[in-house]
Design a protein around this nucleic acid. Sequence first.
DNA 1: GCCGTTTTCGGCCCGACTGTTTTCAGTCG
Length: 580
Amino acid sequence: MNNSQIATEFERLADLLEFQGANPFRIRAYRGGARVIRDSAEDIAVLARQDPGRLRQLDGIGKAVAEKCVDLVTTGEIPQLAELLQEIPASVLEILRVPGLGAKRAAMIYQHLGVDTLDALRLACESGQVRGLKGFGPKTEQTILDGLSLAAAAGQRIYWAQADELAAAIREHLSSCPSVTSLELAGSYRRGKETVGDLDILVVSESADEVMDRLAALAGCASVLLRGETKMSIRLDSGFQVDLRVVPAQSFGAALQYFTGSKEHNVAVRERARQRGLKVNEWGVFQVVDGQEDYLAGATEEEVYKALGLPCITPELRESREEFKWAEAGALPELVELCDIRGDLHMHTTATDGKASLEEMVSAARARGLEYIAITDHSKRVTMANGLDAARLRQQWSEIDRINRELRGEFTVLKGLECDILEKGGLDLPDDVLAEGDWVLASIHYGQKQSRAQITERLLEAVENPCIAAIAHPTGRLLNRRAPYELDVEALFQAVRAYGKILELNANPARLDLNDVYCAAAREQHIPIVINSDAHSVAGLDVMRYGVVQARRGGLTRNDVANARSWRELQEIVSPARDS
DNA sequence: GCCGTTTTCGGCCCGACTGTTTTCAGTCG
């Protein structure tokens, strides 16, 4: 059972308790525990089995959650959750997902009308039964019906890269408003989260009405969900939601801080303010004396954090993980930037499944200001991609030798390969061939459904091979599509550290593999990360920036990123291990 | 249920908007 699965069980427990009207703080505690488990780089199931005492050392996990973890991994269920499911059908959890319907109203509908499925809910609304309940009316009934038809689309998160395109379009659309003096996008998009559930736009303007009218006229705006004096929400044709807030200039920083989140980070910020006799909200930081509130700060985020005795924390780090400890110790990492990246060590050409030739990739990489690249086409086992056998690989490598001679050191092309880790273990090409290369990646393409032990064993064998420099897309996950393979990440990290190897952060927006949590764990263990585009075309080289965003979320500095070094410096990391 | 440089008990972030209300609860972020 992996961390995500364990966390999901606690979230279900919290949902059902909320449905029952249990103590809100108890519910919050379970949700908090679920988040800590999900965010942990350690394997919680292993911890629960071998060293349950250490579970309680995790911030936000106390006696109750720790015990339930042990129950869950040893018996397969949390007893309290199983009991609740005896009383309440699991299908009501779907009702809680309907936008506009929270725990209170859902419970009301369940208790009075016996509604426990989405279909029954629709029928109850259509037959006008819902409006008869106390506190409900025709409008609420319609809101639920609208929410029902959106329930599927509403939960869908889009890739950060897609959100980035949308953000650019909205920015462009709204900047033409004469009254807009500042405009920023906040929320999980600004934090660089790998997927984004909605967009939050923050604007300073003398005329909220003008900005709201303009947003309503955005191409693809399907409906206006709500519109007040300072706040507006719209839904796009795709079902994606966009929220707008209009604030005065003196509140812009406070509002930006507030709407950038995360929720957990903000709770910690406001808690900190309370301890200092201050109050923080989206309008500013206030000194509270005898019920009187005096504005202290709020025009910029720097001001807001400064008022709380903190340096400004970069948005990517605002997840209530390590950032407050770092900030207090004056040890916030100076995060890696796109301009720090000097090489790209994973890309394909027309020799296998790429769309551009070797020469085209070289000149495109040079045009992007890189100093070196590795050509890493697939090996022969990846037949779908027309993978290279030893002869074709050597042919490509002699071609690379020729190109390097012509380049006269102005740019370096490395003889590379993305070597498949075979299903039964071992590498797809013999060591004597691999040894002739400059940079060999190893990665898994087949047998992804194998057991945790098998997958881990295959990866460890690759790490131990002296010809292998790095493991590409180490967990194999595809966002929104495919879960990571079962894998003992701790064992992999340990081996990578022992053999002086490198782990890839694949910058493809659908992969972003390693994720932020594992990047942070790698940094802590001094394992270098290489950020690669895995480009299959010239345009594919431009995804590098998505990888950099993910690396920043993991707290990586230039020093932590292998390809922020020159190729000569990078070789010093890899070579000693290859010789030993 | 969790937590502690005011606390091992008594707190636990804060505000906008909507609908169904005669003053506020529910939902959302």
